[in-house]
């Protein structure tokens, strides 16, 4: 079971269709089971039954999730695969003590792979859709996997399968999500 987490400004918001629904449809197409929770309603039971978690992005103006760092502390002990997309990457990095720095990219950007990893194997440069106002300062326990001309676009924990992507893989790079799901050891269908 994949835990798909909505980081938008409220549960059932107008942004949900834009940032959560496309990932939801992708998971359905790939054929994996998932549950959707707003970040404010993720419970112990949800975390326990999840084989992996995907944290979705938010609108550019939407930074409400940054005001609740305590709601992302579970990431420190989750230890199963995590994919943080855009704002989800910022939340993941923040949980591990990573700061942010201003970096606005809106539209397509070339992403260059910097370090070998199963997620990007065989890729050197690919165009990706970006909508972000900030980039992460890579936390000490993470390595940078890919970058655009402007900032780091992908990070991974040094020993755990915790990934952060600044670009939106659900737009034109669905293969990245498929590969991530390939890393998930599923306990349940």
């Amino acid at each position: 079971m994949i835990l798909l987490i909505d980081l938008c400004y409220r549960d059932g918001s107008l942004s949900r269709d834009e940032f959560v629904a496309p990932v939801e449809r992708l998971l359905r197409r790939i054929g994996v089971a998932f549950t959707i929770r707003h970040y404010t309603t993720v419970g112990a039971q949800d975390l326990e039954s999840a084989d992996a978690a995907i944290l979705c992005g938010t609108a550019l103006m939407d930074t409400g999730y940054t005001e609740h760092p305590e709601l992302f502390r579970w990431l420190l002990t989750f230890e199963r695969p995590v994919l943080g997309i855009s704002s989800g990457m910022l939340a993941l990095a923040a949980a591990f003590g990573g700061g942010t720095e201003p970096c606005r990219e809106i539209g397509m950007a070339d992403v260059r792979v910097l370090a070998p990893d199963p997620l990007f194997a065989g890729q050197e440069v690919f165009p990706a859709y970006t909508v972000h106002e900030y980039a992460v300062q890579v936390p000490g326990e993470f390595v940078a996997l890919a970058a655009s001309d402007a900032c780091v676009q992908a990070i991974r924990h040094r020993s755990l399968p915790l990934y952060g992507l600044l670009f939106h893989p659900e737009v034109r790079n669905e293969w990245v999500v498929e590969r991530f799901l390939g890393l998930v050891d599923r306990q349940s269908p």
Binding site: A21, P22, A59, M61
Partner: peptide
């Protein structure tokens, strides 16, 4: 201004 695209990738 906030931006919303509720039909995105529908």
């Amino acid at each position: 201004l906030w931006s919303f695209n509720p039909l995105w990738l529908a």
